[in-house]
Structure formats: C-alpha cells, structure tokens
Nucleic acid binder design. Sequence first.
DNA 1: GAATCCATGTAATTGGTTACATGATTCA
DNA 2: TGAATCATGTAACCAATTACATGGATTC
Lengths: 196, 196
Amino acid sequence: MAKNQKLNNLCYLILGILLRETRSGYEIVKHLQTVRPVTTSQVYPTLARLEKLELIQTHMEVQDKRPNKNLHSVTTKGAETLANWIGTEPDLPFIRDDFQTMIYSSWIKTPQETIPIVERRIRFLEDAISTLQADLGQHMAIYPDARTNTQKWPFSKYALVSRRIHLYSQEIVWCHGMIHTLQNAVHAETGQGTAG
Amino acid sequence: MAKNQKLNNLCYLILGILLRETRSGYEIVKHLQTVRPVTTSQVYPTLARLEKLELIQTHMEVQDKRPNKNLHSVTTKGAETLANWIGTEPDLPFIRDDFQTMIYSSWIKTPQETIPIVERRIRFLEDAISTLQADLGQHMAIYPDARTNTQKWPFSKYALVSRRIHLYSQEIVWCHGMIHTLQNAVHAETGQGTAG
DNA sequence: GAATCCATGTAATTGGTTACATGATTCA
DNA sequence: TGAATCATGTAACCAATTACATGGATTC
C-alpha cells in the first residue's frame, strides 16, 4: 500500500530547488543548468510524479502576455522526505565523460594530435569557470552572508559553485601537466630523429 | 544502407580496452572498474552490437576447469573508428552525484549534521585514492616507461589514474574548507547563545 | 522576417541498473 | 559448507536524450 518507490537523484534536486522558492517547470530547467543540466522532458514527468506522491503542490499562476505557469512548492511531507534522505549512504557517483574516454585511448594518437584535445578541454573548463564565477559574483552581491550563514540556502549555492570552480581549476592544472609531458615527447622525437 | 548509428561512450571505452589486449566480456567488466564501473548486462549486448558492426571479432577459447571464454579483439575498421572519434567535439560530461545533491540542500540541516556527511565524503575519496594508488604502483612497476612513452597504452592508463588521484585529492581539500566553515558556524552559534 | 524567450507537455529511442538464470571451481 | 570467482547471457525496469507539437511576445 505505502508506495515506497525509491526516489532518484533528480527528484531530490527538484525538491531542493523548490524548497528554496516556488517555481515552474520551465524555471527549474533554467536554474538547474549550473548544477546539473536537465531538459523539460525529464522535469515535467518528474514533477507529475512528485505531485502524485504528495511531495509537492501545484497552483496555476495566470499571466498576461505570457503563457500561464504551474507553480510548484514543496509540501511538509516533501520537506521531510528530502531532510531524511540527506545524510543517508550516497550511491556511487556516475560520470560519463568523452574527454576521459578519449584520453584513455590517446596513446594511439601522436602527441601532436593529443595536445589540441587537452587544450580544448582547458578552454571548456575555463569557459565553465567564468560562467560559474559570474554567477557566484552576482549571488554574493545579493546575499553577502552566503559564505557564513550555513542554514540559509544561499550558503548551499555558494558551497556548490565554489566546489565546482575549485575542481575545474584543478583539472586545468592536470591538463597543463599533461601538455608538458606531451611536449617533451614531441621534443624527444624530433630531437633524436627517428626513434628505434 | 550504411548503418551509421552513432556509437556511445561505452562503445569507445570497450574498443579502447580491447585495443590494448584481447579480452572476454567478464574481463572487460573487471578491468573497467577503475575507469568507469559497468555491469555484464551492459557489456555483453554492447559487444554483440560492436561485432555486428564488424568493429570487433570474437573467437572462443576453450578452457579446462573454467567456463570457455569469448575473446574479443578490435578489427582494423574498429581501430579506425576509434581513432577517428578521438579529437572530435566531446559531448558535455554527465555527472550524477548524491553527495553534490545533498550539499545542494544541506542548508536545511544543522552544521553538526552536515559535518559528518562531508567527513564521509572524505573517507570515500581517501579510499578511492588508495585503491588508485595501489593500482598505479603496480602499473608503474610493470611498465616503468608509462610516464614518458606517450604512444604505448600504459601511458594512457597512467594519465587517467593520476588525473583521478589529483582530482580526488583536490576534492578533499575543498571538503576540509567546508568542514572549517561549518565548524565556525557551530562555534558562532554555541558561543553566542541562541541566535536572533 | 527570423530567431529566441516563455511555457507545457508527449512519444520514441537509447542508456543504465537490478534481478534472474545457470553451473563448475576454488578459497575460507 | 557457504561464499567468492570465473563465465555468459536475458528480462524487466528506470533514467536520460532526442524529436515532435503548439503558440504568443519579444528582440535582432
């Protein structure tokens, strides 16, 4: 009877964003971009599911000159469900990354061919960092206590964004080391003529 | 006619591992653990698909006291397909991480409750690092030139594993910063009595 | 006049996980 | 004697992506 189907990561993300403030499906998609890209085809059915489970409520906002919105908010049951989940044993993180897979077989390419692949990754990471930094700058301007007030949502956003920036910056460090190694291989090759 | 269905990340991973050496499905699952966990239910159908596309070949090895193996190897066409993919525009990385999602809503918990969550993450990362380091140690003992010989597969494995170790170590650094902030919040709270 | 934004969804397909099925051998 | 390892798969389900469908308002 108690329909205790396990909720997935996305459900908790959506509960998390709706607990910050009431939003429409469309707005959820936009605001989750920096945290984890999602599409409407995933969000709308998930919202329907969460509503059926009585974890969120919906009320329609009639708009002029814009399509009407379905504004969703978290119920008491929803907030409890989220709070109870936080701190449970997390699933193994899942990562699918073409760059990693390319590096995994990069030995079949010459260093000259591999270097631009790593350089492109650096550019990707730099772009991501500058987006995150712009986002964070705006955030800190609006919520100056986000760095210290750990029990308001701006802190969690600050934590997450600064974590991303840190990890991306460090991946750039690794990339530079990789390029250095690859350049040495190029020099060894050209410097010594044909390799035996 | 030309069945040009796009291959996915896992296909390229499997081509990559089979190009290193001939393996069975079961062995692929074991060896990909450190790179990206996969199960047999994903690997066997993917191997069948790759064979239908003539990117890999299979030949059965009869074994005594063990079940027979289907040993798979990459065809010329398969090697070309992999080589042509490397360096193309990579898809956006996909990450699903419960820890991140928990941090995203950690503001609804007290700092005292959040600290152990971050500490658990540190333990998880430390465990992962020591596994990777053991793996890497063995690898470097067998292939001492893995660090410099960029056009043999041991280099790619070295690169990947050292990248992981670097990124995990840096996530630990972030975690310590987070714990520091949370501890300050605890002190501010208890030091000043009830907050207004 | 075309592209993008706002806004909500469904359908079809592919990718990933969990559970099931089988069976000998080896290790604790 | 019970668990783990070796070995191959299928079935069912859940998660994620791509494509489709609609339509007014705004921006370039």
